[in-house]
Simulated assay, not measured.
Amino acid sequence: MAEKLTATDRENIQAYLSAMKALEAKEPEYNFADEASAEAWEAWNAECLATTNKYQDSIKRALLFSLGDMTGAAPQSVAAILSAFVDSGQITTSTTARRAEIIEYPLDKINCVIWGLLERDTAGQIAIAAEKRGSKKEISILYSINFDNLGDEVTISKRLLPFDKRVYIAVSALFNAGNNVISLTQIHYAMGNTSRPKAGQLQRINEAIKKMNGAAITVDNSQEIAANYKYMQFKYEGSLLPLERIEASVNGQLTDAAIHIFREPPVITFAKKRNQITTIPVKLLQSPMNKTDANLQLEDYLLERISREARGKGKTARLLYKTIFDHAGISTAKQKQRAPEKIEKYLQYYTETNFIKGYAMEADGVTIIFA
């Protein structure tokens, strides 16, 4: 039976409501890219939680009292009350966002190939060469993708683009930072953006998520296992990005475009199980270059190649322009003419953020200096 409210309870409820109203009036602005504003908001949120905890006993009694006596009530009646709360939007998923300070960047062959299939249809099974150097037998990782679930009426590109990969990596980083409910704004900042998101940017992130959620993939490395390669077996069939859309309150801001992600994105899991992944600070993605598909494809190759070279014992590494152009989709004379300037801007930023010690621009390529 619901307890009657005492005079003290009523005083506590009034004090709580007054305190929360005052706190709401001084809520600080939250900016994921600004550590000071993020810390200020977290301190404010902690004060809100402390205030609620202070009066929690009276709050619980008041809530039970407002529902009335449920003793002996038909279960259907109780369910109807709860259903009414849900339908009216009074019950909404609420979460406090955690920033992704560390980005896990994949270095495996699957991730090196699937996001760059821009010139041919990706429907059907693809055999990705995985045999070791010098092997006389072909060993493949089998991969397939189709976008049938999106339907013909969807106008977004049914190909995986460099922008999609950056969104995918950002979602994975946020999930591994402890978020299973994620807003588009969080993804925007985890991609390396530092300014407030514009409507068009959020729309593009939203379309990338829709595309990847609707994309059905298969990955199977059984041939590696049969060849006694020392990798864990990996078989996956399902969505490229398994999630559901929900309405949620993230850091006190209501959004109807949040995602509830069910598991770590599968092709990131594939890379981690092979130990073919590197970790970088999110700051490394905050270069001053615009995040166009062309720039992201170039940046992706530089990050992947430099990370691979850094794992070796060499103090320097040579990257030929021809190799960079081939992997970054740089094909026209104009693109090749402008590419060295772009490459230098990235390398200058990587030096400033201590990703590399230095670099040297040369006629046919660049030398990366690690020590």
Rank of each mutant, 00 (worst) to 15 (best):
T316M: 12
I156C: 04
M361S: 12
A123L: 03
G116P: 10
S157T: 15
L243R: 02
V366N: 02
K322H: 12
I103F: 01
D326R: 05
A123M: 02
N290V: 15
A22D: 01
I59W: 05
K26L: 12
L118I: 10
K54Q: 14
K109W: 10
R245E: 11
E29T: 13
S331L: 07
S140K: 06
E29M: 11
L17H: 01
E224H: 00
I59L: 11
Y321P: 04
A40M: 11
I81F: 07
L117A: 10
K137H: 14
T96M: 15
N213P: 04
A100F: 02
L296R: 12
G72M: 03
Y359P: 01
I110G: 05
A227M: 09
V113P: 04
G365Q: 05
D220W: 03
L184Y: 05
I139C: 12
G200S: 01
A257Q: 15
L49K: 13
T292Y: 09
L64K: 04
A19E: 04
I277H: 03
A294T: 12
I261T: 02
Q203W: 04
I306W: 06
T323F: 05
G314E: 15
I217E: 10
A271N: 02
E207N: 03
I368G: 04
P265H: 06
G151R: 08
N45G: 06
K230S: 15
P281S: 07
E11G: 01
V154N: 14
I81N: 10
E341T: 14
F234D: 02
N290K: 14
T278M: 05
N45R: 14
